[in-house]
Simulated assay, not measured.
Amino acid sequence: MHLTIIAGARPNFVKIAPIIHAISHHNDQGAAKIDFCLVHTGQHYDEKMSGSFFKDLNIPLPDVNLNVGSHSHAEQTAKIMVAFEKHLMNQSTDCVLVVGDVNSTMACAIVAKKLGVKVVHVEGGLRSRDMRMPEEINRLLTDSITDYFFTTSALADTNLLNEGVTADRIFMVGNTMIDSLVNSLDKAVMPKVEHDIATAEYILLTLHRPSNVDDAHKLETLIETIDRIASGVKVLFPIHPRTASKLTNIERFDNIEFLSPLPYLEFLYLMKNAKAVVTDSGGIQEETTYLKVPCLTLRENTERPETIEIGSNQLIGNDLVALEKSLTAILSGNWKKGEVPPLWDGNASKRIVDHLAQLFN
């Protein structure tokens, strides 16, 4: 069989890396060979996504880069669709595999379906119920035309079943982002920062959602609150230059050390050794759950409720009082231990490849 794998943003590559490894292992076993083409839409350009990034994940550079770049949602989606259609019309394939919920996921799924190619969605069935999130729109549209779903949890299965998807098209396999984490834990690299992360406690902070970073006053208030609550515990904040530009006089914060965006293995080191993580990221909610690191999510909802119901995560929303109360509890050692959800064991990608081999061979 021939598989076309789509990735458009940095987290996508973290999710597809173990699938590529599982394909290689499958082919080495003498089974019916799975050929693949890795397509990078170029939705996000990140200097850290150079050769070293792919080396960290131990995957080949993309076979194709559509180089669409950053645009408005509509223009970016259109550019991806036009470019991917040209590629797919010149490259026959048995199915197109998309991951996650970025614009590339939706755009390439639509193109494939209109050309009569089967669509497989890894992380199908996630729902935040918040239509203000572009990612939620992408999930719903992608899943409405997907042929086969590889899900991370029973909750995702239930979402799909409730939307009319038949059970024979749904395969609960686990979480490929956790596969990458498991495969990389012993390779994590201590980054060079001013704080003594080898011996002293610290909090890891990440922010990227427009609702948290686009309003300069809101961002300043949030950072000031975290700085005050930390009360002598260092807060390490890998921050995008665009977000940093909204803060006035970053030197005035007593407890926050601002860092440049980090390579995958360096960020992993900070995350697994943190006293707590404060974030608005979906993937980090999953990774901290596996690592059993306390996580406070600055969002009003999550498409990954198992990280709260089972794991170490807690939704905070915009409630700065709740943020202070929860972070104080964590720093005092009073936080739920959390458990790892079923099948988040590092073998999701093998299950995916086994199913693909049965479905398309």
Rank of each mutant, 00 (worst) to 15 (best):
residue 292 K to E: 06
residue 136 E to R: 01
residue 273 N to V: 00
residue 296 L to W: 02
residue 320 L to F: 08
residue 243 T to A: 08
residue 201 E to R: 14
residue 129 R to E: 08
residue 103 N to K: 06
residue 245 S to G: 15
residue 209 R to E: 06
residue 154 A to P: 00
residue 174 G to T: 04
residue 83 A to P: 03
residue 103 N to T: 02
residue 6 I to V: 14
residue 180 S to A: 15
residue 21 H to C: 06
residue 55 K to N: 15
residue 27 N to R: 08
residue 161 L to A: 10
residue 29 Q to E: 13
residue 154 A to C: 02
residue 126 L to A: 08
residue 220 E to A: 12
residue 9 A to M: 12
residue 130 D to T: 10
residue 72 S to E: 03
residue 256 I to C: 09
residue 19 I to C: 13
residue 117 V to H: 04
residue 310 I to G: 02
residue 337 K to V: 09
residue 137 I to H: 12
residue 293 V to A: 07
residue 160 L to I: 00
residue 297 T to C: 01
residue 338 G to E: 09
residue 347 N to L: 14
residue 74 A to G: 12
residue 315 L to Q: 03
residue 193 V to R: 12
residue 344 W to M: 05
residue 41 T to H: 06
residue 261 P to T: 08
residue 103 N to G: 04
residue 115 L to C: 10
residue 220 E to F: 05
residue 50 S to K: 11
residue 112 A to T: 05
residue 268 L to Y: 00
residue 49 M to T: 03
residue 285 Q to V: 02
residue 191 P to G: 06
residue 220 E to K: 13
residue 77 T to F: 07
residue 102 V to E: 01
residue 216 A to D: 06
residue 286 E to L: 09
residue 203 I to W: 09
residue 186 D to M: 08
residue 361 N to G: 15
residue 106 M to D: 06
residue 52 S to Q: 12
residue 325 K to Y: 00
residue 293 V to I: 15
residue 91 Q to C: 14
residue 322 A to G: 01
residue 34 I to M: 08
residue 330 I to W: 01
residue 299 R to K: 09
residue 206 T to L: 06
residue 240 H to I: 05
residue 93 T to H: 09
residue 23 I to Y: 09
residue 200 A to H: 13
residue 75 E to V: 12
residue 106 M to G: 07
residue 71 H to R: 14
residue 73 H to Q: 14
residue 228 R to H: 14
residue 166 T to I: 13
residue 340 V to A: 00
residue 153 S to C: 12
residue 173 V to D: 03
residue 54 F to A: 13
residue 359 L to K: 14
residue 85 E to F: 01
residue 17 A to H: 11
residue 11 P to I: 06
residue 1 M to F: 07
residue 37 C to R: 13
residue 4 T to P: 14
residue 135 E to F: 07
residue 195 H to S: 15
residue 302 T to W: 05
residue 249 N to D: 15
residue 193 V to K: 08
residue 111 V to K: 11
residue 215 D to S: 09
residue 6 I to M: 14
residue 338 G to C: 11
residue 198 A to S: 15
residue 30 G to S: 08
residue 205 L to P: 08
residue 326 S to C: 05
residue 184 S to A: 15
residue 166 T to A: 13
residue 327 L to R: 03
residue 55 K to Q: 15
residue 103 N to W: 06
residue 336 K to D: 00
residue 6 I to Q: 05
residue 28 D to H: 11
residue 120 V to A: 13
residue 130 D to I: 03
residue 177 M to Q: 11
residue 300 E to L: 07
residue 199 T to M: 08
residue 59 I to Y: 09
residue 146 T to N: 09
residue 352 I to K: 05
residue 2 H to E: 13
residue 151 T to V: 15
residue 104 S to Q: 02
residue 45 Y to S: 10
residue 234 K to C: 15
residue 118 K to F: 02
residue 10 R to Q: 03
residue 219 L to E: 00
residue 231 S to Q: 11
residue 153 S to H: 15
residue 152 T to R: 10
residue 316 I to F: 01
residue 41 T to N: 04
residue 47 E to H: 05
residue 280 D to T: 11
residue 214 D to C: 07
residue 230 A to Y: 10
residue 163 E to V: 10
residue 152 T to K: 11
residue 261 P to S: 04
residue 192 K to I: 10
residue 101 D to V: 09
residue 351 R to M: 03
residue 109 A to P: 07
residue 356 L to D: 11
residue 149 F to G: 02
residue 267 F to G: 07
residue 164 G to E: 09
residue 235 V to R: 10
residue 156 A to Q: 07
residue 288 T to F: 08
residue 243 T to R: 03
residue 22 A to K: 10
residue 285 Q to N: 05
residue 99 V to F: 12
residue 333 G to K: 04
